Simulated scan of single mutants.
Amino acid sequence: MSHKRKRGRIIQLSSRQLELIELVKKHSPVTGEQLAEYLGVSRPTLRSDLSLLVMLGMLDAKPKVGYFLGNTFRASNEPLQRFHNMKVREVQGVPVNIPDTLSVHDAVITLFMENADTLLVVNEEKRFAGIVTPKDLLKITLGNAGAATIPVSMVMTRYPNIVTLVPDDTVMDAIRKMSQHQVDCLPVIHPPDETGQNPLVAGWVSKSNIIALLADIASASELGDQ
């Protein structure tokens, strides 16, 4: 792994920052006020995000003109264009699945063993049933001595009350949903079939997946500028 690749891997961008980059690509030059309007937030809310992106060289700005893509991306538009067209199926990872009969105690162990932030719950037909987060598990266990034996089906957030993706969604669809719903990861499901059963799990997209992808694009653009 090259030094530039390592440097790219440590970039910690939020979903909103990723969306800002895409908005600037589409509308540059664009003012901070316009970006705030696109995202439905106040201008001061974006100040720290825009400052970070400028510092990283991902965006540049000119007084009375606005923001445009920085040196990191201007060198080669091809990697960025590929990012714009990329599908969820190209970046999705393998989620940590647990059965809905698993106890809360075992779910906690699984979280630690797998170093996972969220667990996907499947029913006996291996179809998507819901998700369980550390917060869900903490709520049920605090002050409840018998909580450890409760099945996760009693504490999970159930499908379809969950924001999801399908493999043919774009990566930008994923970024927009993460930003809109303030989540760092989304389940990827196969479109529901005609049986009316819950869908099958296809994968998982997290903010770290997208950051890694963006780091690769930044590295490719920097190399193209040499």
Results as ranks from 00 to 15, higher is better:
191 P>M: 11
148 A>G: 13
199 P>M: 14
126 K>P: 02
86 M>N: 02
134 P>I: 08
115 N>V: 05
112 F>T: 04
18 L>S: 13
69 L>Y: 13
122 V>I: 08
51 S>L: 15
17 Q>T: 05
15 S>T: 07
204 W>D: 01
221 S>L: 11
168 D>R: 00
20 L>H: 04
109 I>R: 11
176 R>T: 00
111 L>M: 09
188 V>Q: 01
85 N>Q: 15
203 G>L: 01
2 S>P: 12
1 M>C: 09
40 G>H: 13
113 M>L: 13
142 L>V: 08
165 L>S: 00
74 R>T: 12
113 M>E: 10
165 L>K: 00
102 L>Y: 04
167 P>L: 01
158 R>A: 04
193 D>A: 12
56 L>E: 09
193 D>W: 03
106 D>P: 06
72 T>F: 12
81 Q>L: 11
201 V>H: 13
118 T>I: 12
54 V>R: 15
5 R>I: 06
215 A>C: 04
178 M>P: 00
189 I>Y: 01
76 S>I: 02
85 N>V: 05
21 I>W: 02
135 K>T: 03
78 E>A: 11
70 G>C: 07
50 L>Q: 14
140 I>F: 06
139 K>V: 08
212 A>G: 11
120 L>H: 08
129 A>L: 09
86 M>K: 04
140 I>Y: 14
1 M>H: 10
111 L>S: 10
47 R>Q: 09
66 G>Y: 02
46 L>Q: 11
110 T>V: 05
72 T>A: 12
15 S>I: 12
88 V>A: 03
166 V>L: 00
17 Q>R: 11
147 A>V: 03
105 H>Q: 07
203 G>R: 00
104 V>A: 06
149 T>L: 15
190 H>L: 06
193 D>P: 10
80 L>R: 01
100 D>H: 14
210 I>M: 04
71 N>R: 08
170 T>G: 00
152 V>C: 06
19 E>F: 14
191 P>W: 02
42 S>Y: 13
219 S>R: 05
56 L>T: 03
111 L>I: 07
44 P>E: 07
35 L>N: 01
68 F>I: 06
113 M>P: 10
207 K>Y: 01
184 D>T: 08
154 M>Q: 13
152 V>T: 02
51 S>D: 11
